[in-house]
Amino acid sequence: MLQIGIDVSKKKLDICLLLEGISGKRKTKVIDNNAHSANELINWLGKQKCRLEEVRIVLEATGTYHELLCDQLFDAGIYLSIVNPYRIREFAKGMGILTKNDTVDAYTLACFGTLKQPDAWVPPPAEIRELKSLLRRRDALLADVLCEQNRLEKAEVTRTPKIVMRSLMKMLKALEKEQKAIEAEIAKHINSHPNMKKDMDLLTSIKSVGPQLGGNMLMVLRGRNFHSAEQVAAYLGVAPVERRSGTSVNGHAHLSKAGPSDIRAKLFFAALTATRFNPHVKALYERLLAKGKSKMSALGAAMRKLVHLCYGVLKTQLPYDGNYAISC
């Protein structure tokens, strides 16, 4: 098998092809990141006498800049894997690769693919991808609304001209209207797909899981093939990481924070509510505090518990039961 690493940026793709393993001969190529990138890459591989069925491509998840390329490569029947950038950075350190630039990153990704052989990526269903786009837009509008509210608040306590005040209020009203319209579209989209609607009902049956977190967890859990709740927790960056060795190193466990920070933030605020109103999370939180754990450590465990509950209701296809085995 021929391993390829691709470092993706907004404007270009840095490609590294390992012809003879990690320490052997390799070839590099830089191409533009656009709608024709996949075809250009395939043509280049043909010139290198590489058969597509023998190629294994590894690249990082970089916001949205990798999505079109991945879709086109998948449609071409090429085996590719999308890996977490945090894992690649730690892998590079373990390999003794301290330099970080696009060419080195592409080589590191190729090495990672050779040694770790990550699973193949499969694109999420079309309805999940549309949900992801809608949720992204809603989050952007929520951020804009908050910014405009802060501007209006500052303007109200200073000598601000009336024309500026009118502009602020007009813009805030327009943003709030658009936010409500997108939220209505999200609800419409979910309700138009029976399986998604059922999953959303199951997720929001969990106390403290509302439409925002429910929609994001639906996107995560149905957009990837997770085999366990622990995998979901690790992906979202709420898995505990210990730092202990011998008698001299005895650091406190902390969240890995290796996943999407926006969903993790929603989990955090949901966990705050869950420690008061969700019987399972509340029992866990109070038990950890009684053992002397810090509040932040207990909140991290509460976030993981919510992830496990979300995974559980979709796995069993049963609504949340607040009275079920609370002692666990």
Rank of each mutant, 00 (worst) to 15 (best):
F112P: 02
A76W: 02
E183C: 09
F74L: 12
F226K: 05
S133A: 13
D201K: 09
Q317D: 13
K27V: 15
G5S: 12
A283N: 13
I186S: 11
M1I: 00
R244T: 08
H280G: 06
L68N: 07
Y324R: 14
M219R: 15
V249A: 01
K188H: 13
G322W: 11
G210E: 02
T158Q: 15
N150L: 10
L202D: 03
I57Q: 13
V281I: 13
K49E: 15
E185Y: 01
P125Y: 01
Y320Q: 07
L109N: 08
K27R: 12
V157S: 11
E178D: 13
C310D: 01
A234L: 09
T103R: 15
N225K: 12
L68Q: 08
Q72C: 07
V83R: 07
K162C: 07
V83S: 08
L218N: 03
E178N: 12
L221I: 15
G251M: 05
P124Q: 03
P161F: 10
N33H: 11
P211M: 01
I31W: 07
S192Y: 09
Q149I: 13
N250P: 00
M169C: 11
L45Y: 03
A155D: 07
R264L: 02
A325E: 10
S248E: 14
V58N: 09
A270T: 11
A126C: 04
A274V: 02
L115N: 01
C50W: 00
K116R: 00
F277N: 09
L45I: 05
A283H: 15
Y324W: 06
V313Q: 04
L314P: 02
T99R: 14
C111P: 00
V83F: 05
K257L: 09
S208Y: 08
L98Y: 14
R276H: 12
T275P: 04
